[in-house]
Design a protein around this nucleic acid. Structure first.
Length: 308
DNA sequence: ACTGCGTCCTGGGGGC
DNA sequence: TGCCCCCAGGACGCAG
């Protein structure tokens, strides 16, 4: 599943391959294509109308949210193609001529005859052209490749917190202390806090479980029961595992395949708990358990991540 | 305000 | 062998 490292890999691939290429046509394929553009005001026609004739100026990310500001004739970008990959969204640079693919939902054709395809099996992802607005926290952060200090962010992502690989958060200068305070202010289980994109963005189910394993914490451990130093360790663990996954994902794509397929690609061999039900813990030899958590799964070591 | 649960969606794969 | 159902989960809407 695409979490921060996978989305960043996609962002870097897009930055390398699709900037400054005028868009000639946009096709939205079938009812599931329409579903992928469901958040576009005016639907597929409007998406096409807003993209054709323009080009992408940059590829920017915050957490799992990704956007491509559109170049304006005489000034700064005011709109962007916004994308969320959901669970199964992929950006692909198809070979020419490309065969039909059952999961292709949208094709953006460039004036140079190349194309950028959006595939999505489960259609939890979406695409829309959205206005860029000023933010109160000073800009996109993250690996805001290409946009420099532009403080604009898509309206639809303005509520999303900075992520752990944001240079400001990673350095601890912005957000980190406040984040620890907010987790400690709640009785809510610490995994729910990690997954709350308005508290800290980019962490999904896989890396949350891995970070909790590293920090030897149970997912239901109340935030308010944890000393600040323990929470710092947890955030460090989440940062480290996402950095490592990014390093693994960053080596795996070429010009034809912009997306790595999330954790099912190259990083899964490095996972300590996720997807390892019944296997021994790498650290203590205890048994890895899979438990139902918020309508999905949580993996933990039954011995070194005890229930509070 | 805050929290938690249901919903959306498809196809691979396990089990009967 | 074939078919059915479970399961994967990010984000959002709504209920309490």
């Amino acid at each position: 599943m695409p979490e921060l490292p996978e989305v960043e890999t996609v962002r870097a691939g897009l930055a390398r391959h699709v900037l400054d290429r005028p868009i000639a046509a946009v096709q939205v394929h079938g009812p599931l294509g329409a579903r992928v553009t469901r958040r576009q005001l005016g639907g597929a026609e409007e998406l096409s109308a807003r993209l054709v004739g323009r080009s992408f100026a940059a590829a920017v990310r915050r957490g799992k949210y990704l956007w491509l500001p559109l170049r304006e004739a005489g000034g700064a970008a005011e709109e962007a193609l916004f994308a969320h990959l959901g669970m199964s969204g992929q950006f692909l640079l198809p070979e020419d001529p490309a065969p039909e693919h059952p999961h292709r939902r949208v094709r953006i054709t460039f004036a140079d005859d190349g194309a950028l395809d959006f595939h999505d099996q489960r259609t939890f992802g979406h695409l829309a052209v959205t206005d860029l607005v000023a933010t109160s926290d000073g800009g996109p952060g993250g690996d805001a490749g290409g946009i420099g200090s532009d403080p604009l962010i898509p309206e639809v992502a303005a509520h999303i917190a900075r992520d752990l690989l944001d240079p400001m958060v990673a350095a601890g200068t912005v957000g980190r202390a406040a984040l620890v305070r907010r987790i400690r202010a709640s009785a809510r289980g610490v995994k729910k806090a990690l997954l709350d994109q308005e508290l800290v963005s980019g962490v999904g189910n896989i890396y949350a479980d891995e970070a909790l394993w590293t920090a030897r914490l149970h997912y239901d451990r109340p935030g308010r029961s944890l000393p600040p130093a323990r929470l710092q360790l947890l955030l460090d663990a989440a940062t480290d595992v996402m950095r490592a996954a990014l390093a693994a994902g960053g080596t795996s794509f070429d010009s034809l395949y912009v997306n790595v397929n999330g954790a099912s690609g190259y990083f899964d061999r490095s996972l300590h708990v996720y997807g390892r039900e019944g296997e021994p813990c790498d650290r203590c030899g205890g048994t890895i358990r899979r438990e139902s958590f918020a309508n999905r799964s949580s993996f933990r070591c039954a011995r070194c991540q005890r229930r509070p």
